[in-house]
Simulated scan of single mutants.
Amino acid sequence: MAESLPDELLSEILCPVLQVPDDIFSQILVVSPFANPASASRLQGVAQSCTPLLYNVVVIRSKTQAEALAVALCGTHDPGRFIKTLRVEGGFGAHMGHILKSAPK
């Protein structure tokens, strides 16, 4: 069904779920404001046209997430161009080099 909806409508539906306000994004707390499962991970199967929304704000909290993002950025669809805001909660080695090169914004 999602494939039949216009991108503009999908954006209106998903933006409230996926949007992260700047004040929350930049908080430095003992417990991360992103410690709960991300809404985006539950919505990844919605539609390929939602890719820009899913990658708009990226929060990396573990080595596994950094590895998964690095693999996703190797794909042919170049999702790195959609990353506008990146929060890294730790040091994740060589994967970060690839992520940063793939996310020019």
Rank of each mutant, 00 (worst) to 15 (best):
I24C: 08
E89T: 07
S102I: 10
L29V: 11
V31N: 09
T51E: 07
P37A: 03
P37V: 03
N56P: 02
K63A: 07
I24F: 13
A72C: 07
L100W: 14
E3S: 12
F92A: 11
L86E: 07
L18I: 01
P21W: 03
V88A: 08
A72H: 06
M1F: 05
V17W: 08
G93S: 09
S32N: 00
G80C: 05
G97K: 06
A35T: 07
I13Q: 12
P33V: 12
V88G: 04
I13M: 13
H95G: 04
A66V: 04
Q44R: 09
E8M: 15
G93Y: 14
V88K: 06
T64E: 15
V20T: 11
G90Q: 15
L100K: 10
P6Q: 11
L9A: 15
P16A: 11
M96C: 09
A66P: 05
L9H: 08
S32L: 12
K84P: 03
C74Q: 13
A40V: 00
F34E: 03
L54G: 03
L86R: 01
E12Q: 13
P37R: 00
Q44L: 03
L100M: 15
H98N: 09
I13C: 10
M1A: 01
Y55K: 03
Q44V: 00
F25G: 10
P16G: 09
F82L: 01
P6T: 13
S11D: 14
D7F: 14
K101T: 14
K101G: 08
R87E: 02
K63G: 05
Q19G: 04
T76K: 11
A2L: 09
V46E: 03
T76H: 12
P104L: 12
D23C: 10
L53W: 01
R42S: 02
P21E: 07
P33E: 01
Q48L: 03
T76L: 15
G97W: 05
